[in-house]
Amino acid sequence: MTTPQSQIATHLQTTKSLAVSPTWLNSFLSSSTALQRNIPLSALTQTALFRILASDFRDSLTTNNPSSLLPIDIFDPTVQERRLPGPIPVQVLDIEDIGTSLWSQVEAIERVERGEAIRGREIVRTVNVGGEEGEEGAAGAGETGGAGASNGPHRLILQDAAGTRAVGIELVRVDGVAVNKLPIGAKMVLRNAMVARGMVLLTPECVTVLGGKIEGMDLAWKEGRKARLLERISGTGEGQM
């Protein structure tokens, strides 16, 4: 006889490639009264997925299957090329637009702080001053000609369920991957991804963005982003013309 635990685990594995930790799943079910209230299994599964996407994969996923993990020596630059069959679930620890100057990114943040956004060549006031939507608006509007757009390519720091980290480089634009659109802690799955000299080459064919975020990590990253950019500018001398 199949149990709710096994049904949920099987569904998340087959549809999202997420191998849920039995410990995490048991804790999720015991901490809710869902089973006692006879909530439909489909709704319970969706709630579990939502919680997993907001969790740290190191807590919510199992590490029993090596094929679902990054190689521990993935950073090795002496390995010219290797392929990761996967699927490998990972979470985003950092994202950087390496196609836009550091100064342009600082200016985009400061426009949001002032409650402004770029629409074409015109600066307009935004309603949500200093809010997340305002910064997203500045980035999105910039794609039509304004400065500060997160057009990429992007450099990501990815982490698997075992805690192994890897650098991902957006080789071809991946939908949903952009500063202010992909939160820290967002989840994705890698399939048949190529690794060249220690860097995972990200393309639409090998990346599935699942969404989600880790609230505390995302907030800390946003609050410190301007300071990190300014520190890099002072260290590299960018903008000193």
Rank of each mutant, 00 (worst) to 15 (best):
L84I: 12
L84R: 06
P85Y: 04
G86N: 03
G86A: 13
P87L: 04
V90G: 01
Q91H: 05
Q91S: 13
V92C: 05
V92H: 00
L93N: 04
D94C: 02
D94K: 05
I95Y: 03
D97R: 08
I98Q: 14
G99S: 03
G99V: 05
G99P: 03
G99Q: 07
S101T: 13
L102W: 08
L102Q: 02
W103A: 06
S104E: 15
S104L: 06
S104Q: 11
Q105M: 12
Q105F: 02
V106A: 04
E107A: 14
I109W: 02
I109D: 04
E110P: 00
R111M: 15
V112I: 10
V112D: 13
E113G: 02
R114Q: 15
R114D: 15
R114S: 10
E116A: 07
E116S: 07
A117H: 03
I118C: 04
I118E: 10
I118G: 05
R121G: 04
E122H: 09
E122P: 00
E122V: 11
E122Q: 13
I123W: 08
I123M: 11
V124R: 13
T126S: 10
T126K: 06
V127G: 08
V127R: 14
V127F: 14
N128L: 14
N128Y: 09
G130F: 11
E132P: 03
E133Q: 15
E133Y: 13
E133M: 15
G134F: 11
G134T: 13
G134P: 04
E136Y: 15
G137P: 00
G137Y: 05
A138D: 14
A139W: 09
G140I: 08
G140V: 10
A141F: 04
A141V: 00
G142V: 04
E143S: 13
E143M: 15
E143P: 00
T144M: 05
G145A: 00
G145R: 01
G146R: 01
A147Y: 07
G148R: 10
